[in-house]
Design a protein around this nucleic acid. Structure first.
Lengths: 210, 210
DNA sequence: AGGTGTGAACACTTTCACAGCA
DNA sequence: TGCTGTGAAAGTGTTCACACCT
């Protein structure tokens, strides 16, 4: 639909939405400068980002908060529910499952899978932990669209390959491994150790990081 | 020490190191192309990244694995131990505390703090959960260098301000809030919802993400 | 021959500056 | 007047291509 939207732009769009959601006056307006201040960027950047998707500001006034947040939700695809499967019911999987921020954004965890016989059958909230061996059936039954991988590094590539073969087109990977997927699959990595290493680098070297 | 090293370069350096650590022949050599394949980048990129820090490859041969990994560890500041304090002993804090990948990289969690009287005094491994009210003393006693914030969004700014005033110069923030710090403090955010939103965007729009 | 190190070309992102609309 | 939307300029990061070393 839209072409050439950079990763950093998408990140900022999420941020703008979060800012709009707890602005003082939810019926009022915000200027690009207001948003920029809160987001830690520049007014020009905000306008450039938004202008990629049309022009929905009022000159001399700014942006109407309800209109802009609605538009951002639509752009980000948050005007619907996403069906998410969590693979890996260990410590990280549990913390993710409990995190309330997903559901409130429309990300519904509809399945939890694990490999460990001791965990299979256990009930978490309103889902039962399934055997990862039956991944394909579970994804079909639950109409899974997004995969969260919280398994050990050595297991992740094979499981992702199976999930992709079963039709999943978006993966959020917590395993510290470089997963290879074809171009038509969206993949994001979350790697806390890498973030710490970036801090370590900045502390060790001159001060230019952020 | 080194100037103008981009964020993406630092990220890749971490990745190169991880790749080197589980290369088949730990006494052998790797070429920039080998590394690039594993890291999902190009050989030229690998050479550019490394050349920022000197030239330690052998023409016609590649890089000696032990030498390069040692050098990368040094560049990233991983040739020492970092003393980390964890603020927030909730679900996310607990998952982070248990994660073995930190210690193996030299990040030692030397203090855990929380606000909840029910948790204060509890023992996690070899640390006792302290009252966040005593943050300054705890940081001084433990010589904390890096802060991990796993607290609710509303609490994070004030706590980071206090930590910075107490001398901390690096913060890894898990709270979904935009924390403001002065230029000389390194700050990284980990925001899983934002990553999911980026996936949602890619799924909703045309296929150009990754 | 094989593979590094690097200037130059290219691509992408951010900032500037201002025309134009409410 | 106030603030958006946007071409053009500046800045940054990536890729190319090749000289050079082993």
């Amino acid at each position: 639909m839209y072409r050439k939207v950079s990763d950093s732009t998408v990140r900022r769009l999420s941020l703008y939405l979060r800012i709009l959601e707890d602005v003082e006056d939810p019926r009022g307006t915000v200027s690009s400068e207001d948003l920029a201040d809160q987001a830690g960027t520049t007014a020009a950047q905000v306008r450039k980002d938004l202008s990629l998707f049309g022009s929905f500001g009022k000159r001399g006034l700014g942006y109407l908060v309800p209109e802009l947040s609605g538009r951002l939700r639509q752009i980000l695809g948050l005007d619907r529910e996403w069906r998410v499967a969590l693979v890996g019911a260990g410590r990280i999987g549990a913390a993710l499952f409990e995190y309330p921020g997903f559901r409130s954004r429309g990300f519904e965890i509809v399945a939890v899978l694990d490999h460990d016989p001791a965990k299979i059958g256990e009930r978490w909230g309103n889902v039962t932990i399934e055997d990862v061996a039956h991944m394909e059936e579970v994804f079909a039954e639950t109409a899974t669209q997004i995969l969260i991988m919280a398994v050990p590094a050595r297991a992740v590539q094979e499981l992702v390959d199976r999930a992709v073969a079963a039709g999943v087109r978006a993966v959020l990977n917590f395993a510290p491994a470089q997963v290879k997927v074809s171009q038509d699959v969206a993949l994001k990595d979350v790697n806390v150790v890498m973030e710490l290493e970036a801090l370590s680098f900045t502390l060790s070297q001159g001060r230019e990081g952020r």
